[in-house]
């Protein structure tokens, strides 16, 4: 019994772009001095580096994103999250830091396809034409907070709070609906 399930359990929608909730994903919020040597060391051990302002770095299935001047978000496999949380907390134990496993508090979506940008153009006050790869853009999608980055060619990833995953799915599905392509 007792298998964990993500907010929408991998729900999908197909319009002029594909929308899919990504199931369970490990997410760890790290709040500390981003100049910390211990931080640099522990993320280096994972093949990552401390990202610069608004950047997201990826390596070996993990990613580390700059969320604010004193906050990073580490993405990993859901099964690894509690272990990695403990590892990070241990590495930063001697410093003023707060490491929290937020895997269950969030939902992750991917929008993919040639016109994926158009889906989010309808929801976010963001200039997607100039949003570079490797940038983590925190903004809003319609009425909820969202964090968005280009996770592949013709693919955007979106993180939102778990409780509004259904709302986010609705937004993305409606915005991606056939006939809504922007000429």
């Amino acid at each position: 019994m007792s298998e964990p399930v993500s907010a929408l359990n991998g729900a999908k929608a197909q319009g002029f772009a594909q929308v899919a909730e990504q199931g369970l994903k490990g997410m760890i919020a790290i709040r500390c001095d981003l100049e910390s040597k211990s931080l640099a060391k522990v993320v280096k051990g994972m093949g990552l580096s401390v990202p610069a302002q608004r950047r997201i770095v990826t390596a070996e299935g993990r990613a580390l994103a700059w969320m604010s001047p004193d906050e990073l978000l580490l993405l990993c496999d859901y099964a690894d999250a509690s272990g990695v949380t403990a590892q990070l907390a241990e590495a930063l134990a001697k410093e003023h830091a707060l490491v929290t496993d937020v895997s269950d508090a969030r939902a992750l979506f991917r929008v993919s396809g040639e016109k994926a940008d158009q889906v989010l153009m309808k929801l976010c006050p963001v200039d997607f034409e100039t949003l570079p790869e490797g940038e983590m853009r925190r903004t809003r999608a319609a009425q909820v907070a969202a964090a968005i980055w280009r996770s592949g060619s013709e693919e955007l990833s979106i993180i939102c709070f778990r409780s509004v995953a259904g709302y986010m799915m609705g937004l993305l599905e409606v915005s991606a609906r056939q006939g809504g392509e922007i000429a």
Binding site: Q53, R54, S68, P69, P125, R137, R138, T139, R140
Partner: peptide, 12 residues
């Protein structure tokens, strides 16, 4: 000034 984003009022 913290993240460098020029945000419209609906983000603020």
């Amino acid at each position: 000034p913290y993240c460098g984003v020029t945000a419209e009022e609906t983000e603020l």
